[in-house]
Simulated scan of single mutants.
Amino acid sequence: MEPILELNSPRLLMRQWRDDDLPAFAHMCADPQVMRYFPHPLTRLESAKLIGRVRGHFAEYGFGLWALERKDTREFIGFTGLCMVGFNAAFTPAVEIGWRLAKEHWGLGYASEAAWTVMGCGFEHLELEQIVSFTALSNLPSQKVMQAIGMHTDSVDDFDHPNLPEDHPLRPHVLYRINRKQWLATL
């Protein structure tokens, strides 16, 4: 499949990663507030490796986590996209929608706007039957985005993230889903 290089929403450009995104991305991923629902903030090297994995995902699958840029300022503000779930669970194999934004861009509706656009790409262009999203039970801000884009949860789908130690406070996760029919009903 030819990679999907770019998506547009009214205020945002979802594009391929550039080398000059690294400083802003590393700064965002080193921020303890941004990373509070992840095991730990990332070092600059870990952030660079993540960009490399994202580029590899695009090369393999034709889609991935797009760099997120504001159209008005041309500023890199985070990422939004689709990726194959990288661990085994009751709901895998699956395609996950995810996002991460720098904190100065929170509360402006960018995460929902970008996620809605990406979900449309997943169902219309990639012809996916279902998209999932998951997060720590305590991550209410991300759950609000999941709900805003029409995703649903059922407590029977809650799971312990297999890549976190048993006693880790972020291990309990909630799973949200949306299928093509549900998405079409929101249009």
Rank of each mutant, 00 (worst) to 15 (best):
R171Q: 15
T117F: 04
M1I: 01
E124P: 00
F134R: 09
I149D: 08
G56Q: 15
N179S: 04
A114F: 05
F25H: 12
M151W: 00
C83T: 09
D19G: 12
I178Q: 14
D19P: 10
L108K: 15
L12D: 10
S112R: 13
L5W: 08
Q182K: 10
Q147F: 02
L126D: 09
A26L: 06
F63S: 06
A148C: 03
K181F: 06
S133M: 03
W183A: 03
V95N: 11
F38L: 15
G109R: 11
G150E: 04
Q147C: 02
R171T: 06
L12W: 07
H27Q: 14
L13W: 07
S142Q: 02
L7K: 11
G150C: 12
Y110S: 12
D160Q: 14
G150S: 10
M35E: 07
N163Q: 14
E104C: 03
H40M: 11
T80K: 01
F25G: 03
A30L: 02
K144V: 00
A94R: 12
L170T: 02
A48F: 04
H161Y: 09
P32C: 10
K144T: 07
H152M: 15
W183V: 01
S47G: 03
L42I: 00
R53D: 11
W183C: 00
Y37R: 01
L170V: 01
C83I: 00
P169V: 13
F63L: 07
P41I: 01
G52I: 10
A24H: 12
L175D: 01
R44S: 01
R11S: 13
R70I: 02
W106H: 15
Q147S: 10
R70S: 10
A148F: 00
E104K: 12
I178T: 11
V174K: 13
P41G: 04
Y110Q: 11
T135D: 07
I51R: 07
W116R: 15
H161C: 09
E127P: 00
E2C: 01
H168R: 09
P172N: 07
F159K: 08
D21C: 05
L68C: 13
D157V: 02
S112Q: 14
A26M: 08
D72M: 01
Y176P: 01
V54P: 02
C29P: 00
S47P: 03
H152L: 15
E124V: 11
H168M: 08
G64R: 10
A94K: 13
C29E: 12
A94M: 13
M35V: 03
T135R: 03
D19Q: 13
L50F: 05
K49L: 14
H40S: 15
H168L: 11
T153D: 08
L108T: 08
N139D: 10
K103I: 00
M119G: 00
S142D: 05
L5M: 04
M151E: 05
